[in-house]
């Protein structure tokens, strides 16, 4: 007897049902991986002039991001 095809939601529910809460979580969570950060390596290229860097708050054009306000 083949078990009926499970939808993804059912699979998560099933996994959640028998999965005991992991040590680091206080509340009950579905079995999710913790965040994994990825920072692309910065390349040394064009830089602002000293006066402009002081004004803009960074030496590197690729890091300059003023908040639109």
């Amino acid at each position: 007897m083949t078990t009926p095809e499970k939808t993804p939601e059912q699979e998560i529910k099933a996994a959640a049902a028998d999965a005991t809460p992991a040590a680091h979580t206080t509340a009950f969570y579905p079995p999710l991986r913790l965040a994994q950060a990825y920072v692309p390596p910065q390349r040394y290229g064009r830089t602002y002039s000293p006066a402009e860097a002081l004004e803009k708050g960074t030496l590197f054009p690729e890091l300059y991001s003023p908040y639109p306000y």
Partner: peptide, 27 residues
């Protein structure tokens, strides 16, 4: 004074960059 402040800021930025890229000659 302004020029000194600007150059000090550039020195700080380059220090931070070199902390993570110690083997790069140009910076």
């Amino acid at each position: 004074l302004h020029d000194i402040m600007a150059l000090e800021f550039v020195a700080i930025e380059l220090t931070l960059y070199l902390d993570t890229h110690p083997t790069e000659q140009e910076p």
